[in-house]
Amino acid sequence: MLLRLLAAVVLLASPAAANVRATQAALPLEGGPDPYAIPVARTVASIIEYSRWPQDHPSIRLCMAGPAEHAERIAERPLTRSRAFMPLAIDTPAESLGQCDVLYIGRMGLDDQRRFTDAARDKPVLTIAENDPACRSQAMVCLLFEANGVSFRINIDAISRSHVRIDPRVLRLSVQGGAP
């Protein structure tokens, strides 16, 4: 509830900034075989850095659902407070229960994505969708791949339901609008 309020305040407070942000990519592309891999890793790691789970775990259990295209560098990112990523591949939504801190949803249909997000609802799981630019899958964070970089969209409704608390300052970094 508090988070929803905070998010609403943040959203209301910066309509002008939102317009500016909507046209610009956040993180620039890097070289290498997949130019999106490093910005994606950086974005995901930063969001995780500014997120709080009800219980602190020594490692962040990063669950990969479905085939992810740009997620291969995420687990390499360093995390503060001597935590580390613990990547886990899951196939069914039921597997996410109690095992995952972060659920990275790869390329799949909207209905499949919904099944994963439904399973993660009301749990302390941060959901990130790779293939949902309009953010209709009820994932909390939806990555946006633009020509010159990577940015993200957030689903305030999903964030407010979730038990994971994301720093409102991070929410301001997201591309606003677009979610139905």
Binding site: R21, A26, S46, R169, R172
Partner: peptide, 21 residues
């Protein structure tokens, strides 16, 4: 405080925005 996440993300545009805010 306002620019902290933006700096962490390395997002210069976001830093600008935070300053503007």
């Amino acid at each position: 405080y306002a620019v902290e996440p933006a700096v962490y993300f390395g997002d210069t545009e976001a830093v600008h925005e935070a300053i503007r805010s």
